[in-house]
């Protein structure tokens, strides 16, 4: 009986939290910026903070993951005498799965946590209240540009991840392991389709970007405004964000590639 009550209470709390977060998201996106030039300037600042500053980690991990995939793939494929297919393996696994998921996880750790911490700090130092006192909506001024920047950046980063991963794999397999480069490219081009592979990967990244950025800005905005509260909110952003990415990835993969 108590267990049932507990379960019910937990579910209702959860539902309430999701509802609040949904209203929060709708408000921050729908309350459109008043002045166009001003909001573009804010957006560019956030694109820099969220996108450009995440670029290094994404490029480096993309290159390494591509190189590792090429090595692993080569050692297995060479047993079947089809080491030329390493390009195909590389491109398909990166485009469909690894690039969106790994980029989103890195993004949650790098940009998501810093968004939460930044907004949380603004709340703790009463900057958010201060905007409100000046008759400026903090949702529109602080949250909206950060959310939009996050949604724009993650798909771009995911594509850059794929490209560097493929180049990294190319260097290892063609440059080091001696795979014939013509076969590498032609097998890759034969098996990779623009709409099913590249576009589906892009759509995945777009879905992840909405969810991760949403979690990050909401956790920052709703955090307890103390140093402990900000720390907890940052941890929650990374944990919740990562779990949401992996769960959503399963759903999206089933929807996109599930019909055999």
């Amino acid at each position: 009986m108590n267990l049932l009550v507990g379960l019910g209470a937990w579910f209702l709390n959860w539902l309430e939290a999701v509802g609040r977060a949904g209203i929060f998201l709708a408000q921050s996106v729908l309350r459109m910026p008043v002045r166009f030039r001003e909001s573009i300037r804010l957006l560019i600042q956030q694109l820099y903070a969220v996108g450009v500053l995440s670029l290094v980690i994404v490029v480096v991990s993309g290159a390494f993951i591509g190189m590792v995939l090429a090595l692993q793939g080569y050692s297995i494929l060479s047993k079947f005498g089809s080491e030329e297919a390493v390009g195909q393996l590389l491109a398909l696994s990166l485009l469909r799965e690894l690039a969106p998921v790994v980029t989103a996880l890195l993004f949650a750790g790098r940009a998501g946590s810093s968004l939460t911490a930044e907004i949380g700090l603004m709340k703790a130092t009463e900057q958010l209240s201060s905007y409100e006192m000046m008759g400026v909506d903090p949702l529109r001024r602080i949250i909206a540009p950060r959310f939009i920047a996050g949604v724009i950046c993650l798909p771009l980063l995911s594509i850059i991840f794929s490209a560097t991963g493929i180049i990294g794999g190319l260097l290892v397999s063609v440059g080091w392991l001696g795979v014939h480069d013509g076969a590498f490219w032609s097998l890759m081009q034969q098996s990779v389709y623009f709409d099913t592979d590249i576009m589906n990967g892009f759509i995945k990244a777009l879905c992840f970007s909405v969810v991760v950025t949403w979690i990050a800005v909401y956790q920052g905005y709703e955090c307890v405004p103390t140093s402990e509260g900000i720390g907890k909110a940052t941890t929650r952003t990374v944990v919740l964000g990562s779990l949401a990415i992996l769960a959503l990835d399963f759903v999206l993969t089933a929807a996109m590639f599930g019909d055999f």
Binding site: S162, W185, D197
Partner: peptide, 8 residues
């Protein structure tokens, strides 16, 4: 690059 080189 992905569109042209990888997916042909």
């Amino acid at each position: 690059y992905l569109a042209v080189q990888v997916s042909g």
